[in-house]
Simulated scan of single mutants.
Amino acid sequence: MNINPEIIGFIAGGMSSALFIPQIIKIIKEKSAEEIALLTCIIGIVSSGLWLWYGIMQEHISMMVTNSISIVATGVLIVLKLIYDKEKN
């Protein structure tokens, strides 16, 4: 069986990107982002940004797509964190 590595990349990257969705939903429902560490989000964006850059250099579409999604999802977490922390204070 010969599986295209890009398919594996899309599955793995898609699962990694999907990790953020339950957290985003929880934050919106509870209107609180206390449990989110801003530093963790910043590290996540930098990491995904570097993986995106690597994917672009290597021309791996799966890395480009999935890390772009991760950057957006982590950006949403940061925005929600800033909004709800501001409302709390």
Rank of each mutant, 00 (worst) to 15 (best):
residue 1 M to R: 04
residue 1 M to P: 05
residue 2 N to V: 14
residue 2 N to L: 11
residue 2 N to E: 14
residue 3 I to V: 15
residue 4 N to G: 04
residue 4 N to M: 08
residue 4 N to P: 03
residue 5 P to Y: 11
residue 7 I to C: 03
residue 9 G to W: 07
residue 9 G to R: 05
residue 10 F to G: 03
residue 10 F to N: 03
residue 11 I to L: 15
residue 11 I to W: 10
residue 11 I to A: 15
residue 12 A to Q: 07
residue 13 G to C: 07
residue 13 G to F: 08
residue 14 G to W: 11
residue 16 S to W: 09
residue 17 S to W: 04
residue 17 S to Y: 05
residue 19 L to H: 04
residue 19 L to V: 13
residue 20 F to H: 11
residue 20 F to Q: 08
residue 20 F to C: 10
residue 21 I to K: 02
residue 21 I to M: 09
residue 22 P to I: 08
residue 24 I to Y: 01
residue 25 I to Y: 01
residue 26 K to R: 06
residue 27 I to W: 01
residue 28 I to Y: 01
residue 29 K to C: 13
residue 29 K to P: 09
residue 30 E to Q: 10
residue 30 E to V: 09
residue 31 K to C: 11
residue 31 K to A: 10
residue 32 S to V: 09
residue 32 S to A: 09
residue 32 S to D: 12
residue 33 A to S: 14
residue 34 E to L: 14
residue 34 E to Q: 13
residue 34 E to N: 11
residue 35 E to D: 13
residue 36 I to T: 14
residue 37 A to S: 15
residue 37 A to Y: 09
residue 37 A to I: 06
residue 38 L to G: 08
residue 38 L to Y: 10
residue 38 L to E: 06
residue 38 L to T: 13
residue 39 L to R: 13
residue 40 T to F: 11
residue 40 T to C: 08
residue 41 C to V: 10
residue 42 I to P: 02
residue 43 I to R: 01
residue 44 G to Y: 03
residue 44 G to N: 13
residue 44 G to K: 02
residue 46 V to L: 15
residue 46 V to H: 00
residue 46 V to M: 07
residue 47 S to C: 11
residue 48 S to C: 14
residue 48 S to H: 06
residue 48 S to I: 10
residue 48 S to L: 09
residue 49 G to T: 05
residue 50 L to E: 00
residue 50 L to T: 02
residue 50 L to S: 01
residue 51 W to M: 10
residue 52 L to H: 04
residue 52 L to S: 09
residue 53 W to F: 15
residue 53 W to K: 02
residue 53 W to P: 02
residue 55 G to C: 12
residue 55 G to I: 10
residue 57 M to Q: 09
residue 58 Q to I: 08
residue 58 Q to C: 09
residue 58 Q to E: 07
residue 59 E to W: 03
residue 59 E to A: 12
residue 60 H to K: 15
residue 60 H to I: 15
residue 60 H to Q: 14
residue 62 S to Y: 02
residue 62 S to G: 06
residue 63 M to H: 01
residue 64 M to F: 04
residue 64 M to V: 14
residue 64 M to C: 08
residue 64 M to E: 05
residue 64 M to G: 03
residue 67 N to W: 00
residue 68 S to G: 15
residue 69 I to W: 07
residue 69 I to Q: 07
residue 69 I to S: 11
residue 70 S to V: 10
residue 71 I to C: 11
residue 71 I to H: 02
residue 72 V to M: 00
residue 72 V to L: 07
residue 73 A to R: 01
residue 73 A to I: 00
residue 75 G to N: 05
residue 75 G to A: 06
residue 76 V to P: 05
residue 76 V to W: 02
residue 76 V to F: 07
residue 76 V to K: 03
residue 77 L to P: 04
residue 78 I to R: 05
residue 80 L to Q: 05
residue 81 K to C: 12
residue 82 L to Y: 08
residue 82 L to I: 11
residue 83 I to P: 03
residue 83 I to E: 02
residue 83 I to S: 06
residue 84 Y to I: 12
residue 84 Y to A: 14
residue 86 K to G: 08
residue 87 E to W: 07
residue 87 E to T: 09
residue 87 E to K: 11
residue 88 K to P: 12
residue 88 K to A: 15
residue 89 N to Q: 12
residue 89 N to T: 08
residue 89 N to G: 14
residue 89 N to P: 05
